[in-house]
């Protein structure tokens, strides 16, 4: 959690937008994931979101589903994800790592054991897609006690009255899902994002990241004009799957570098 807060404080002071790529752990292999993480950081990623493979990824579109299936074909589980974070953390003490996935693998490990292992491995935040605040009170508290940030989603369909309930539990940053649909879908409405972010900021003091549907320089810049962070998943995974595994890190790194340059070319935001 401290690493997340420090990262956003540093970026805010510099008037810069955070860049948060999402990748699936174990796709195409655990070794490759570690290389991809390092390449993403070297090319300008500020936070890494690591997907935890799940057999039934209901909120994900076809690209992340495929990545999850590839990872599961190699029997990648939550324990392996934590092991990757531990190895990453051994050489990178500052870049925050957020785990993103579904409830069942965590419940199978046990929430208490998971929180211990995640803290020990050097995880900073956890986003469980199918734990809305109604079902996450105890879990969020447990994470907080372990110095881990519970990250929550906000959606275009979230009523304004409900944002407070999310804000009460959320730490680190909140993640605004920029469209109704699954990850990787293609109908981003920037004006709607701007309107909704203004509404969210009336209730949330944490940084707001925006994701789902960002896939190129134009959409990244459009979102960055309003958001504190840009989250990109499916498009990064397409780079990883789009060639031989040995070149995955280089391809993902080169692609994220184009987004980094585009974000840095924007005028600096005034520090809040």
């Amino acid at each position: 959690m401290k690493r997340i807060d420090a990262t956003f404080a540093r970026l805010r002071a510099a008037g810069r937008t955070a860049l948060i790529p999402y990748i699936m752990t174990g796709d195409p292999s655990l070794e490759a994931t570690l290389d991809v993480m390092r390449a993403l950081v070297a090319n300008g990623a500020d936070v890494i979101e690591l997907g935890v493979p799940f057999s039934d990824p209901m909120a994900d579109g076809p690209v992340i589903q495929r990545a999850s299936e590839r990872a599961l074909a190699k029997r990648t589980g939550l324990k392996d994800v934590l092991a990757v974070v531990r190895r990453f953390r051994a050489k990178d003490a500052t870049t925050p790592v957020v785990l993103m996935g579904y409830a069942n693998p965590i419940e199978a490990m046990g929430a208490a054991a998971f929180a211990d292992h995640a803290r020990d491995a050097g995880v900073d935040g956890v986003l469980v897609v199918d734990y809305p605040p109604e079902e996450a009170g105890e879990f969020a508290e447990r994470l907080g006690n372990h110095g881990l940030a519970p990250i929550f989603l906000l959606a275009p369909t979230t009523p304004e009255a409900r944002i407070d309930a999310v804000a009460a539990l959320a730490r680190g940053y909140v993640y605004y899902v920029s469209l109704k649909g699954v990850t990787g879908a293609g109908h981003l409405d920037t004006a709607e994002v701007a309107r909704k972010l203004a509404e969210i900021r009336r209730h949330v003091t944490l940084p707001v990241g925006v994701g789902f549907g960002i896939r190129d320089v134009a959409s990244a810049q459009a979102v960055a004009a309003y958001a504190d962070a840009v989250v990109i998943g499916s498009r990064v995974i397409q780079e990883i799957e789009g060639g031989p595994p040995s070149g995955a890190a280089a391809r993902a790194g080169a692609w994220i570098a184009t987004i980094r340059r585009a974000l840095d070319a924007m005028p600096a935001k005034r520090a809040a």
Binding site: M58, V129, P132, L153, A155, R162
Partner: peptide
């Protein structure tokens, strides 16, 4: 039981 779904579906 409960309501274990992504945020987008909560309003519906």
């Amino acid at each position: 039981g409960g309501t274990f779904v992504a945020e987008t579906l909560i309003r519906a």
